[in-house]
Design a protein around this nucleic acid. Structure first.
Lengths: 229, 229
DNA sequence: TAGTGGTCTAGACCACCCC
DNA sequence: GGGTGGTCTAGACCACTAA
């Protein structure tokens, strides 16, 4: 085809990189570009809309389209299932359930997930291994009021994350990433020294505003979360 | 307007959540949906295309559109300028250049950024403070062959990241996030114990395949990278 | 090879919002 | 008020690929 929206995207990017359209400059309107490229406005529109999503352009009705001063950089991290992540890395995956208990929801968790008082929850401790080496320690809490079926699952074969994603898909959530010090438990399970650095990912998940699950994932300091942008 | 692509998106999401279209199920084709919703196929197409981007659907020519078994969860973290990040948090920002030197590119950096042998680079050490407390220690390397102008900048007032983003926008890069142990230098600058956990963000940046800059950002363990999905 | 999504067009109406 | 992007339409051709 003569003019694809992709061609327009790359052409626009070229002009920006070559400083023909410097940061802050206003870009010709859609009608003008459509005429220049000899295509329909809808085609230009799609190209420009995607460039806006990519963080390169700023668009406002009436004001027109401008080149962003500082392109908003976004790192886009995928959050795969641990099993898939390990297998994708070419390693053998092994999962072990370390501990399982039904307990009243602790106060800190109630605050974090906005759970009603007196609810019961399932507390799981799991290990994930890659080629026999400790890969991740998963400290997981599941709100049984939100997911009653979890009480019947045994979690011996399938990890809670994988189970949950099948039972309660399409949830909303929050992710916190940080560095922490290995506690006694964690250091033993991950086979690192007490107090040494541990990479921590915390995930809180809601469904329709109800707290579903909270997980704290601990990785040895060899672990890196990587992405390109 | 009667049928917006947004209405279609929410309606489709509802059907998925209510298990009318369970995971793995094939969804009616675009023509069928267009007829059902009483709109043009292009409208349905946009809705479905965006839902695919959102990780909810899988689309293949001829095979049709299916609901994903496990929705691919993506967290996308914004990477703001440190100054803006601190100011946005309601804190006073202060920047200090700790050290600056022109040196031959070290071997490990040449390997990482694919820089030609014998090139010179600028090595900067900077501190960022939030309300007087150490917020980030920035260990930055700039390839002078790629950014000659950097040799003239003094980096006393403006940090290298902010300077670079203005001089060399629209680059490609890689981000690695991990946990590390504080070295002697870092522990002193961040005011933490030697060997204690430090949150580390490493960013490598290329322009047209040429290594531009590498930065290792160290945060005290109180720091958390947060996002919602 | 037939059916599905991928894309483009030419035209239209509208909502928003800077000037 | 008027110009800009936001969206929708009805129709068309094409590319890919599963059956």
């Amino acid at each position: 085809m003569r003019t694809s929206y992709l061609n327009i995207k790359t052409e626009v990017m070229n002009r920006i990189r070559q400083n023909i359209w410097p940061p802050g400059a206003i870009v010709p309107g859609e009608v003008a570009l459509a005429q220049e490229f000899g295509c329909a406005r809808a085609t230009v529109n799609r190209a420009m809309r995607e460039l806006e999503q990519d963080g390169v352009l700023e668009r406002k009705r009436k004001a027109g389209t401008r080149v962003k001063h500082a392109p908003s950089q976004k790192a886009h991290f995928a959050i795969p299932l641990t099993r898939e992540e390990i297998v994708a890395g070419g390693n053998a995956y092994r999962y072990v359930l370390v501990d399982k208990a039904v307990v009243p929801v602790p106060v800190w968790l109630r605050a974090k997930m906005e759970i009603e008082k007196g609810a019961q929850c399932l507390h799981l401790k799991c290990m994930h291994f890659a080629d026999g080496r400790p890969y991740q320690f998963e400290d997981r809490w599941i709100n049984l009021a939100a997911v009653p079926k979890a009480a019947e699952a045994d979690f011996e074969k399938v990890g809670p994350n994988e189970w949950l994603v099948r039972q309660v898909p399409y949830t909303e959530g929050k992710v916190d990433v940080s560095a922490g010090a290995a506690s006694n438990d964690v250091s033993e399970l991950l086979d690192v020294d007490v107090g040494s650095p541990v990479f921590v990912v915390e995930r809180t998940t809601w469904l329709d505003g109800h707290g579903v699950t909270f997980a704290r994932l601990h990785f040895p300091p060899t672990y890196k979360m990587t992405t390109r942008f």
